[in-house]
Structures are given as structure tokens and as C-alpha cells.
Amino acid sequence: MSKAKEKETQEYLGLSHVLNLSFNWSAGPYLGKWLTELRDNGKLWASRCPKCQRLLLPPRIVCGICHIRTPEWPDWLQLSGKGKLLEWEKVVAPQMNPSTGKIEPEPYIHGNILLDEGVTFQHYLEEQDETKLKEGTRVEVVLKPREERQGLVTDILYFRIVEE
């Protein structure tokens, strides 16, 4: 057998592993309140920087630009969940969910939405037909039913097109 042939037929060995770790993390007072409000009351909130007036979604304790404290809940702004589509992308690359080890279904469409209150938010879109999407399309948030919500950002199912 020639050297090249030998190289082709050589069996490469390796080891299979499963990295399986469970861990808890504290979401902190602001993100924790935001997630529990989403889960329990189905409400979306954003905090506003008292200095530069921009909205922070999800709310943060300190404005990243002005470096000053933002007000605590309930001095947050409740969002309508409606807005317009700024841009979107069709994700075709198969990706593994790191919490289950399974490959997520693809393709799916992921959008960047400008909410009516003036803050952007990124999430999945319900519409899978790209020809029905254009910049400025009106969309609204759709949540999972109350009993299926887990207090995670995935409690938001997707944004769907609204006819107005």
C-alpha cells in the first residue's frame, strides 16, 4: 500500500464527552424584576436615563453612557409591545442549543424592531415569508400562554405582523 493510500485509510480515533453542568445565577434587582413582570403579568418595561432620556431595554441600573443611576420599578415605562420592523435576517446556519445539546430547527427569521416608545428590541418574527416583510412593517409582541412562561426572554414567542 502506498503511503498516500495508507494515510487515506487510516482510522482517526478520539474521545466523546458530554459537558453537563447545572448552575444558578441571580438576575439582579432590575433584570429580575423585568423577567418576573414578563412572566407573571405579561408586561414589558424599559427604564429611562434621567440625564440623556434614552430608554434602556431591558432596564439597567446604570446608564452605560451617562454612568448615573436609573429609577427603580415602578418608575419605569410600560411598553405597548408594538413597533415597526427596522431590519431582519434569515438564519440558515444550524445552531446547537447549549442547554439541550440539540440542533435548533432552521431556517428562521430574526428581526430588529423599533418599538413605538423609541427603543429597539431584537427577537424572532412569526412571518417566515421574507417577501411579506419590508422596512417599517408594523409588528406586535406575542407572549407564550401564562402557564408556559418560565421567566426568560424566550417567554416572548415572536413578533407578528399587525394590519392597522
Binding site: 482517526y12 480515533l13 478520539g14 458530554v18 448552575f23 441571580s26 434587582p29 429580575g32 420599578w73 421567566g151
Partner: peptide, 30 residues
């Protein structure tokens, strides 16, 4: 006021993977 009880998120990592020994170590293990 926000609640004083911290909101704990339960996280999990479950990542199956396979690493090759490489050409030399494969020969060793064969």
C-alpha cells in the same frame, strides 16, 4: 421599590462533543 428577593435563573449547559487525538496519538491508540 423592587423586591429584595433575588430572582434566580436556573441555567444548564449540555454540550456533547468529540475531540480527535490527531494523527500520531491515533496510531498510538490503534
Amino acid at each position: 421599590m423592587t423586591s429584595n428577593t433575588p430572582y434566580i435563573v436556573e441555567g444548564r449547559l449540555f454540550v456533547p462533543y468529540f475531540n480527535y487525538y490527531g494523527a500520531l496519538a491515533s496510531e498510538f491508540y490503534r
